[in-house]
Amino acid sequence: MTSSAPALGLLLDVDGPIASPITRTIDLPAITRDLVELAVRGIPLIFNTGRSDDFIRREVVAPLIAAGLPAGARVHGICEKGAVWFSIGPQFGAAGVSEIQVDETLAMPADFATEMRQLVEAEFADSVFFDRTKRAMVSVEQLTSIDTATYLPIQARFDERALDSLQRRGFGVSRLDDVRRDARGEVQWRIDPTIISTDIESVVLGKDLGARRALELLAVDGPLPLAWRTVGDSRSDYAMADWLYAQGYEVAHVDVRPADGVPEKPYLVLESPSGAIHDEAGAEFLAACLAETA
């Protein structure tokens, strides 16, 4: 456990800033190298993602440990937008992660998950796959063999089928700006389309919940950072910085895909100075962090 508060903590989305949204892997060696060096320098790193713990173990944890992540570094994973969490490091054995914690109260109904898996297998298998590794969310992801223009109309058709299924069960569902409520006026579940997938999830889940989990994990292994940088590629990622700002932290958000529009915020919003996007912008940001902490 460290004795002095770190000057900075990093709260990182994975798809986009760290992993390529095209290949879904860390393609730039500098990203892994710089993440390890930041951890060595005592900067807490928390991956706050909608991905499953299985994906993070394979695509993030394994490369970090192979690159020399030291035991005892303050590195943690928050998956499925706050439903799943764990710590990361070689001290946890071959898997590189601590015991997986899951908030079962936020899990989608099992019969709905089964129906969506069967729907994908019967009607959408040539364009998407059902993510069997999710513990709380239901996620359907674009195959890398098709392009975005092909995927988006297919995604819209799937989303409508998912919405119909939830409404047949009497659940209130929110989808973009269309909010439909149950007899008690409540919304329990949300359909959240991303650029490569659709996540169907509890409305409690979100990058803000992930930020709260991050502070809870860090409180166990040392002092909390004095300031934060959050990094993401979608508008929903701003919720990390929103939550930290509301708690009184100095925070700046790094947007690696600002083409969707940068909202007005009471904190600093940063973009790539070169105009890079996605993981190239993420690599620039990590390199800048290293320069600042040298």
Rank of each mutant, 00 (worst) to 15 (best):
A5M: 11
G9L: 03
G16A: 05
P17K: 10
S20W: 09
I31S: 04
T32R: 01
D34A: 02
L35F: 02
L38F: 05
I65P: 05
I65H: 12
A67W: 01
A67S: 10
P70D: 06
V75S: 08
H76E: 12
G82A: 13
S87A: 12
A94G: 07
S98I: 09
E99W: 02
E99F: 02
P109N: 14
T114P: 00
M116N: 03
V120H: 04
S127H: 03
D131M: 09
R132P: 00
A136P: 00
M137C: 14
E141R: 09
Q142V: 00
S145Q: 12
A149W: 01
T150L: 05
Q155T: 00
A156Y: 01
F158R: 01
E160V: 15
E160F: 07
L166S: 04
R169Q: 14
G172L: 15
G172R: 06
R180K: 15
D182P: 12
E186S: 10
Q188F: 13
Q188I: 06
R190A: 08
D192S: 06
P193M: 02
E201W: 05
L209E: 05
L209H: 04
R213M: 05
L215R: 03
P223D: 10
L226Q: 12
T230N: 11
S234P: 09
A241C: 15
V251P: 09
H253I: 11
D260P: 06
V262S: 13
V262E: 12
P263E: 09
S272W: 06
S274K: 10
I277E: 14
D279G: 12
D279C: 15
A291C: 07
